[in-house]
Every structure is written in structure tokens, then in C-alpha cells.
């Protein structure tokens, strides 16, 4: 039963790692772009939020499934 928890932890950890690196790069590029052309700031920020949501997609799906594992599969409810 403990393996389920470890599996969920690995899912959360690796997903978060990928998302963090992605967001870091995205934020860096946003600042670069805004510094280079400040008048494009708002538009770049809009696109950044859209891409931040897309980057978040797979890790958050991992978080959703990991929480399902922890709170439903681990205690064996409804099995």
C-alpha cells in the first residue's frame, strides 16, 4: 500500500520540476522581451499567462491523479 504513496510523490515531484523549469524560462523571456520593447509589455504578459496555463496542464493533471491516488486509492475506499 505504501508504494501508492511513493508513486504519487514521484508524480508530483517530477511534474513540479518540469513546470518550474518551464515557468522560469517563460518568465525570463517575458522580462527580456518587455525590456527590449516596453510598449509590447501588456500583449506579452497576456501571451505569458496563456502559455503559463498550458505549461501547467500536464503537471496539474499529474497532481490531480496523485491526489486521487493518495486520498481514494491509498485508504482503499470504494475498492
Amino acid at each position: 500500500m505504501e508504494l501508492v504513496i511513493i508513486a504519487a510523490a514521484i508524480m508530483l515531484g517530477l511534474g513540479a520540476l518540469g513546470a518550474a523549469v518551464g515557468m522560469g524560462l517563460l518568465g525570463g523571456r517575458l522580462l527580456e522581451g518587455t525590456a527590449r520593447q516596453p510598449e509590447l509589455g501588456p500583449m506579452l504578459q497576456g501571451k505569458m499567462f496563456l502559455l503559463a496555463g498550458l505549461i501547467d496542464a500536464i503537471p496539474i493533471i499529474g497532481v490531480g491523479i496523485a491526489m486521487y491516488l493518495i486520498f481514494v486509492v491509498a485508504p482503499g475506499v470504494g475498492a
Binding site: 501547467d56 496539474i60 493533471i61 499529474g62 490531480g64
Partner: peptide, 9 residues
């Protein structure tokens, strides 16, 4: 699943 994952989490 993206919408589900975000809101479920």
C-alpha cells in the same frame, strides 16, 4: 483533463 486537474487540485 487540464480543467479537471486544475480544479480538482
Amino acid at each position: 483533463l487540464r480543467l479537471f486537474g486544475n480544479m480538482y487540485a
